[in-house]
Each structure stands twice: as structure tokens, then as C-alpha cells.
Design a protein around this nucleic acid. Structure first.
Lengths: 155, 155
DNA sequence: TATTGTTATACTCTATAACTATA
DNA sequence: TATAGTTATAGAGTATAACAATA
């Protein structure tokens, strides 16, 4: 096996990427794919995806929020949130509790197990961040985050 | 409807994102999601995804390449390439031709229709790129691409 | 009427393992 | 033995449309 998983072509032969390397979108996709792969390996012990990590963080930091607000914060549809929470609840990491003020909605909370897993995951995520950004110094990392946050009208 | 599709929380109420805004991975995901959304809207007439656009570009620029090399160039598994090409072939945009030198593999080519669609798509993609990067000047755009390309060990 | 959560449905992307044909 | 493509299978992410319960 001469080519590692998910790595770009290394076959020495000429390959023409045309306009792709000049596109922000293409570089974004590639960088995100690389980050996703490293994330998965780094958090193998926790078995969570970047999106699930974000959900756990937001629930812990905003305990009692409902699914609609969580979806708005993440920029995903309510119907998508259902499946995300289903998985997390199925693993005993998140609980749907009755919301005191509105019987249509749930108050989302982390279980003890969820809190413990998130604690472990945080440390692994920080190590993962260091690894993917090891080619950049702190100033460049800050610059990258600033530029990314200004993309897509988040302004 | 006070909240636009896939936009971050605008409910005025306090919301705690905790460590997320400081993570490269989180900002990468957010930026990519915004770019994907804009791409989809921009290329509605062509009905292709960013990944499919990349495949069409690479096939045109490297006519006759096989699925394995394409997968290597994109960093995706051979089995994933099959479904991707199936869809494109099903729409008559790509053709699997017998490879002259190796009867195990196909030589991928764009159909006339595929070439025409790619021609239209290129213009739309460039407009899309301008739109998502409208908050950045040329120097910042170049800087962003440079920083992104140095993430994930692509070094 | 509007909102929350849900279900049904659908599409894309992704991978692993095992298989066939060919090298 | 190794490689190219395929299939079966699985999981995650995403959305739209329609529905029940509640506001």
C-alpha cells in the first residue's frame, strides 16, 4: 500500500488540478476533510463527530435549551436536530427533560455520562487542534480564524 | 419567519458558545457550511455539488484517467468514487470508456453535455467565489488560501 | 395562527469488507 | 499476489413537507 488513506495523489505522475487550487471553496473542503479525519482519529476513544462535540458543548454551556434554539445556534434545521439528539440520547449522553414553561419543547441536558465524556473529549479536541495547526504559529492561527469567521456573510 | 435558513442564532437572547469560536475546526465547519449553501444556490441551474464540480474539472483536465486515480487525487476511497461516477454517468455528464491499456479499468471522459454543463458551471463558481469572499480583499483571500493549504499536514 | 417536536422521505458523502475480472 | 471496479452494508449529515400537540 503506497498511498495513505485520504491523502492526495502521490503517484509522481503529472496531475492537473486546473482552477481548483485557486478556489477558496476547494481549499475549504480539503482542509475540512483533513481536520475531520484527524478529529475522528483523535477522538476514537470517545467516538463522537465534530458536530456531536459541538452539540454537547452547547448543551453544557446552555443547559436547558430546546432543540429549536440549538438548531438555530448551529445553523441546522429542526428536523435535523431530532436525529442528532436521538443518537446522543440513545447513547445515554443527553437527556430530554420536560421544559417547565412550555410543554411543546424539551429542556436538553447532559447526563452524568455525557458530562464525563465531554470532559475527556475537550482535552482530546485541544490536542487535535494543536496537531492540525502545527504548521501555523499562533499569529497565523488567529489570522486563519479571523478570516474564516468573515466568510459567508457572518461578517 | 424571523430567522433565515441556516443562519446562526439571532434571537437576541444570550447564548454561550463556550470554546467553539476559538477552535479552527469549528470555524472551518461553519465556513464550509456557509460556502456549501451559497454554492448550492449559485449553481441551482446546474444542479451539482462542490464535490461533483471538482470531479468534472479533474476529468476534463485529465481526460482518460481511471477511478482509482481520481479517488486518490480527491482523497476518497475507490468505493466512494463508484457512486459518484454512477450519478454523473446517470445524468449523461460522464462516460466510462474502456481503457486501452488495462481492461480492468475505465477511462473517464466528459460527454458533450458534461463539457457544456461544466462550462456554465465554471462561470457560476467564479461568481460564487466572489460572493463568499466579498468581505475579504485580494490579499486576504490569497492569505486564506495559503493558510488553509497548510492545514492538515498538506504542508 | 404560530411554534415545537416529530415522522416520512430523499439525497449526498463517506467508509469497510468481500467479491469478480484482470494484471 | 496485487490491482481496478463493484456490491452490500452502514453511518452521518442535510433538507422539505406534512402532522399532532401546544401556545
Amino acid at each position: 500500500m503506497s498511498i495513505a488513506k485520504n491523502s492526495p495523489d502521490q503517484s509522481g505522475e503529472d496531475f492537473d488540478y486546473d482552477l481548483l487550487p485557486g478556489l477558496i471553496g476547494y481549499n475549504l473542503r480539503k482542509a475540512q476533510a483533513a481536520a475531520f479525519q484527524d478529529f475522528s482519529e483523535s477522538l476514537k476513544g470517545c467516538d463522537i463527530t465534530p458536530g456531536q462535540f459541538g452539540v454537547l458543548v452547547l448543551i453544557e454551556a446552555n443547559s436547558g435549551l430546546n432543540q429549536t434554539r440549538l438548531g438555530n445556534a448551529l445553523g441546522i434545521d429542526r428536523s435535523t436536530v431530532v436525529a442528532v439528539i436521538d443518537r446522543l440520547e440513545g447513547r445515554g449522553l443527553v437527556a430530554r427533560e420536560p421544559a417547565p414553561s412550555d410543554r411543546r419543547s424539551y429542556a436538553l441536558r447532559l447526563s452524568e455520562q455525557g458530562r464525563a465524556l465531554l470532559h475527556r473529549a475537550r482535552a482530546l479536541v485541544l490536542a487535535h487542534e494543536e496537531r492540525i495547526a502545527k504548521g501555523l504559529n499562533s499569529k497565523e492561527q488567529a489570522q486563519l480564524i479571523k478570516l474564516l469567521s468573515r466568510l459567508g456573510g457572518a461578517s
